[in-house]
Design a binder for these strands. Sequence first.
DNA 1: TTTTCCATGTAACTCGTTACATGATTTC
DNA 2: GAAATCATGTAACGAGTTACATGGAAAA
Lengths: 173, 173
Amino acid sequence: MDERELLLLGLLSFQSQHGYQINEFIERNLARVTSMKKATAYAILDRLARDGYASVRTEQAGNRPPRKVYALTARGEERFRALLRRSLADPGETTIPGDIGLMFLDQLPRHEVIEGLRERLARIEEQIAGLEQVPRHGHGIGVDLAVEHKLVLLRADRDWLRGVIERLTSGSD
Amino acid sequence: MDERELLLLGLLSFQSQHGYQINEFIERNLARVTSMKKATAYAILDRLARDGYASVRTEQAGNRPPRKVYALTARGEERFRALLRRSLADPGETTIPGDIGLMFLDQLPRHEVIEGLRERLARIEEQIAGLEQVPRHGHGIGVDLAVEHKLVLLRADRDWLRGVIERLTSGSD
DNA sequence: TTTTCCATGTAACTCGTTACATGATTTC
DNA sequence: GAAATCATGTAACGAGTTACATGGAAAA
């Protein structure tokens, strides 16, 4: 909730934009960072305007459909900074998908567990490879940091997983 | 969704239980792994019974309120194993809270950023300290693995954060 | 000429949480 | 006599996704 709002406020803090534009940008450049859907973005933009965090100006370019261009208001910038501070300071609850499954791994035949974990490992390695190809300084150091962060955690995850698979493969318990 | 269902199926795979019992167990022993709320558990148990994954037997102990004891059916065990295999193999989308904020850190005065990240670091260290005190082999190796996993990722996160703070503190860039 | 692009949205749905209701019983 | 325990639920709400509607213009 707050994260999606923060994202939109942040994008607007760079420049005023209309919804379509924002959605395009997210889809093309931020797919790895967020999975926010278009309808959601439109709805939040609406809310931002309603709450006075953004102003709306309708713009017509030629014969195209009219655009609603959103611009941060002073209140909006304040809101942005407040959310940003909170977001930086609060690590939140990182619920790791798969950890629940881990708890029950005794219930499954050992070879099936290993097979599953190997597949997981392969997927993680794909994600890492994908992120490693993201160009640096494409959209500011902040974005680079976010990518770097993800990479660090993915690599730690990968290394741990390798260890676990090894432990499980080498038989003893 | 699937994770919560998997958790309940897994708990039932150890032994038949009624909802209250399961909720107690989760609250007391699994608060660090899941945040599923009671109402949710009751609803999912209901659904499991409706879909034939669990059988229900109503039991009365003395003058207490009647209990609905759920037991896995054959279908339920199959379902459990299927979800478990999927959960092990699929790393899913680990959306890290805070990464969105990271992207915009240029928009905030440097000292505020550092202040925020220091607080984040402290919180993470608290989480680590908390997890380090969890006794091993409390509830099976699976649970230990899950805790270990969380610890590994938290430590990687902590180390990275320290590096970032250092980089930011030492001025340049 | 059919598909894609532009640009906005709505309606229905799912999943989960919060807050509350119930009512007997045991503990403080 | 008040509070916690036992045991189940319901109703209202919030956030988000999916799928669809619209309609002109440009590209294939």
